[in-house]
Nucleic acid binder design. Structure first.
Lengths: 203, 203, 203, 203
DNA sequence: AATGAATGAGTGTTCATTCAT
DNA sequence: TATGAATGAACACTCATTCAT
């Protein structure tokens, strides 16, 4: 890109930090956080371990930086949702956008889904839990019946798990995502309507 | 128990294998598999690491043995389901019993839920995946619409995740489990009925 | 010792811990604490680094154990002194015995003398400081003039430093130690007598 | 100071070398040489590590430069002493001035006192040892009795250690220094007089 | 006069595992 | 049925140093 002569080991200008993040996320998602060593990341980038430490103070900081960079949309979405009236429309809008945001950071969320024990001990654990609580508080009516609260929560991790577990269902990915979204929306809608006195007439 | 003299450090001989499993499961569930060392397990039991190796050939074998011992009910359930006609009643029965089985081995399933990345690399990974596929094949009609297939799958991990994520919802655990079960049954029922042409009349 | 056949790599029965301490002290005294690596110690013993960790939990614990093992005589001496009346005789006795104890743990005290900055940050730092304070409280009369207090303190580190700095003075070591002791005794005596009203008549 | 515009991060240019020395000495004295990293020094100065290398070729050169800059008075003093007749007066004068010089470079000497093991391995080690030998040759009469030689040496490190160990003695610092000096002078005087036949009657 | 980016060699420490007793 | 002693391989991390810009 601009340079005429591109010998081996050249061309790395200011993008090393980014490259570290990319490779790290790939490996973390593939093998888990603890089983991925800094040596492995460094080797794949053809730099030394010490180079990683120029860009990140600790191994944990790598995953934290990924989390912070990639979940900004979620954070904003939840912030936005908090200020809306908790109508059915709002909830549906939230679910729709959340599904999109999830798809946009798939590897990170696969990682978090599959390494919950690790995540819990990391600095991101609490942040994430707070986020989930925020989302829940928007989607759930606190005076709904327990079963409808469960329905809302179920909608949430239908989306989370959906991306990964569905993998071995046949069918084109875009269609699967649409189906997952539909089920989630359905759960949310059922929960909302039962809590607000509508019958079975509509759905 | 039955022994006449109970000196210090005696406390029932012969059950060490069992005690190892108990402590290991507790720690695995609490901190994750990789972050739990054999040293830790041994210390908590007040034996040496080498003693663990008398009872289990490797660390992996400890978790494998737990999996095999604790998921036998599931295995039998699925075997049973495979031989039944795939009616709605059967499916509901399966879901009900699965929920019970899950509750009976809660720590193990919490562990598996929160250490999916690890489990995948272990010997139990494939076995578990097979089981899930078996369950799915019973619950899902292969020619149902995609969205109804998703509904069935969603029922499954509503149960799985339900136990843990619901933890910070208020309310008595038994009621929560009932609510989770109801939502799962509902999803299964909807999926089945849509696939078999019934309307909204029933629920 | 008893064994008939002594192949290479044999004969280490239960003395490894001791051998580690010996080699470690030798190296610590020679090169300093920080500049001595566990690799070095292990290599010299022809064991692996991990073997060191079987016997000591950390590097620091090695030096701590040495300190505790080798300074027990001092501790007892000070405890004894604390319970005696603070007469000149007692003080002289203390100084004499302290000089002996010092000579009995020479390498350790050389180490502590030459690595004060390190020692201060280690767990032994405070213990040692307390000991010195204990000794001082015995040797010094709190209402003596400042200059005589200094004399007493000077006696103390005349002994401490004496062993090492005198090294490049010619003469047989035993004679040097006697000379150092004499000076220390002299300082203590002067301090005591000036504080208790005797003239120059005696010494 | 002289500059018209003092933008942020400017604060007098040209004196960086000096600022490095100041911070380095402070940290070396506080934590020891090996435990003080160039990163730490650089961070405290708000420059990069590489900047240190513009001013000093190695870490060792920093401490060497400090030693050379700060011990010039000592060097000159010893040079002067060498050319004087070794009378009592000369010796006393030397001790007095040495005490002053010591006080003028306190942090450096604290550092050297507490990091003898390190200093020994550094380039300054030999230089310092030579200096000490020079001083000793002035203060000691080679044909004095051993005990009087010890007295002279004791005077020397009474001064050296005095500054630091006395710290936790109560009393105003200036008075303490005076007391230390008095004891040192006393030791020197005793040594000299005994060697030259004057005394208070006994020897 | 100083920085950004990187390296190579090392550190202390932990782990699952082995084996003679 | 266990222990005491050890290992080999790895790990996260730090350091002094270099060099093109």
């Amino acid at each position: 890109m601009g340079g005429t002569m591109n010998g081996p080991k050249q061309q790395r200008r200011g993008n090393t930090r980014q490259r570290i993040q990319d490779v790290a996320l790939e490996l973390f998602a593939e093998q888990g956080y603890e089983k991925t060593s800094l040596r492995e990341i460094a080797e794949r980038l053809d730099v030394t371990k010490a180079a990683l430490y120029y860009h990140f103070k600790t191994k944990e900081e790598i995953i934290v930086s990924l989390f912070e960079d990639l979940t900004k949309p979620m954070e904003e979405l939840i912030e936005w949702g908090r200020q809306q009236p908790h109508t059915l429309d709002t909830k549906q809008e939230i679910v729709r956008r959340y599904s999109e945001a999830l798809a946009g950071a798939e590897p990170l969320f696969r990682f978090m889904q599959e390494n919950q024990a690790t995540v819990r001990e990391l600095r991101i654990g609490d942040t994430f839990k707070d986020r989930m609580r925020g989302l829940r508080d928007i989607l759930i009516d606190p005076d709904a019946e327990l079963v409808d609260q469960v329905r809302s929560v179920s909608a949430m991790f239908t989306m989370h798990a959906g991306m990964f577990v569905m993998q071995d269902l046949e069918g084109d990915p875009e269609k699967k995502r649409a189906a997952v979204l539909e089920v989630a929306l359905d759960l949310i809608t059922q929960a909302h309507e039962r809590a607000h006195g509508k019958g079975c007439g509509k759905n």
